[in-house]
Each structure stands twice: as C-alpha cells, then as structure tokens.
Amino acid sequence: MKRIAVISGKGGTGKTMVCAALAAIFPPDLVLGDCDVDASNLGLIFQPEIISRSPYYGLKVAEIDQDTCTRCGSCEEHCRFGAIRSQEGEFLVDSIRCEGCSVCTLVCPKEAVSMVQKVNGELYYSNTRIAPLSHARLEPGSGTSGLLVREVRKQADERDGDRAFFLSDGPPGIGCPLIATVTGMDAVLIVTEPSLSGLHDLKRVVTVAEGFGVTIFVAINKYTLEEEIATRIEDYCVERGLHVVGKIPFDPTVIESIRNGRPVTDYDSPAADAIRRMWEEIAEIWVNT
C-alpha cells in the first residue's frame, strides 16, 4: 500500500479541502483516513455512514481511594504533572492533567491509588461514496491525540491493508499528532498559503517531515491572494529541493463547495482544475515510479 498524508504546519490553509478533492479524483482502490482527530472535518464533506464504532481508551488515569488515603501527600509531592491537588483535606486527581505515569501508585505507602481505564474518544470505520474511511473523535481536553492517530492508522491497515492507496487528512502543527501521522507514510503533501506565517510554518513542518525520509510535495493554496509571497515560497522550495506540485488560485467556489458538503472537484472551477493538474504531477512522480 502506498500512503500519503495531507498536512500543513499552519492551520486553516485548506488542507482538508485539498484532501477531499484529491480523494474524489484518486484511483478507486483507496482507503481514506482522518488523522486530524482534534478537529476531524473530512466527514463533513463525505457524509460517512458509520459501520463500526469502538471506544478509544487513552492512557489510564490515577484514582485515589479516599477511605484508604491517610493524607500523607506523597503522591502530590512526586507527581510531576501537577495532577494531584489537595482540596479541603483530600487529595484529588485532576484527570485532565494526569498522564498515567503511575508514579503515585509507586510512592503511596497505603496502596490507595489505582490506575483506571478512561474513555478518551471513539474510533469509527465508515463507508463513503468514495472509499472506506477510518476516523475518530477525541474527547475535548484529552491528552493522547497521538495515540488515537495511531489507532486510526492501524484500523485502516488492518481492514484495508490490501488496497493500493491510503490517503489521509492530517493535523496542523508539528507536535505529537503530526508525528504519529507522518510516521510510516511514503509521502506527504504540505498545503501552505501565501503569507509570512504560512512560509514560516512551512519551514518547520518540512524539517520534521525530512526527518522521516518521506517524499515531500508542496501545494500553495490561494496563491493569487499574495503572489509575491507565493513566489518566495516557491523559491524556498526550489532551494530546498522540494516538489511544488500545485498552485491553487483563490476561488469562491471552494467555500461554496464546503458549504454544500461536496469536494470542490465536483464543480467546474479554477481551483478544481488546479487540483486535477496537481494530482497528475503527484502521480507522475510518486505513483508511476
């Protein structure tokens, strides 16, 4: 299976829109993923029909049995995440801050602390009119989005490992969910936008992606809004040896397509044309070799 993720560094560059449009024109032997588990949006375009759902357990969290606890304070002293707080004489675990390290169980002289399972989200496997979709929903405030990303990836591998392609929407940023997304991919498509912050963030995400040895493609979305900065981005990519595979013009059809819950390639429009040409470029370099 060949695997590609659409990522962006900076949020809001149009990554999901591009991913959806690509999905619609990809070869049909495909499984889709949404690794942006914080804010999973691919489903808004493909109206998935969920065929299986399973609870996602993150790391366990500590629980203190107040009857056994003698209020010695050892757990609070040793917890490095500030997850144990004393309140009116009781030591309580802040389950949002708890990272499940279990040090408190180690230092409690009375064995009053136990580690308990906690549901941190839900994993879905769905049908869409394009291809099956592996996706998830993270409970707001959960700490383990990277682990949930890995579950999304694994589910796609297990169920559809024999398909030719895996195409996934990715998270913004360069932290733990992004790293979980890029690990084991063959290629990434970085969607950037012509702004100084877009360029700045592009450079950071490129550094991370290079560390994983994946093929890197770059698309400049809405390039007509700021052509001079778009040129600077292209210059940077050339200098760095990256393939700029697409320049997508600003196009009001994009917003309209999203509002209608459809990929932009369903419409005849400049952005759709640019994305079709971009796919040919990617296919040329990545699929046919």
Binding site: D38, G141, S142, S145, P172, I255
Partner: peptide, 28 residues
C-alpha cells in the same frame, strides 16, 4: 493557543479568566 482541543490547548487555557474563541462561518 494552538488550534485543536487536545492537551496543548488545555495547558494554554487553564488559569485564564476568559477565553475568546475565534471562528469563521464555514461548516468546518
């Protein structure tokens, strides 16, 4: 804050007196 709803957001928002949520009127 960073975008999203996971731990970096919690770390940022905790302890604030008020949170401004910036959005745009698209389905996303």
């Amino acid at each position: 804050s960073s975008p999203g709803i996971a731990c970096p957001v919690i770390e940022t928002v905790e302890g604030a007196d008020y949170v401004v949520l910036v959005t745009e009127s698209t389905p996303f």
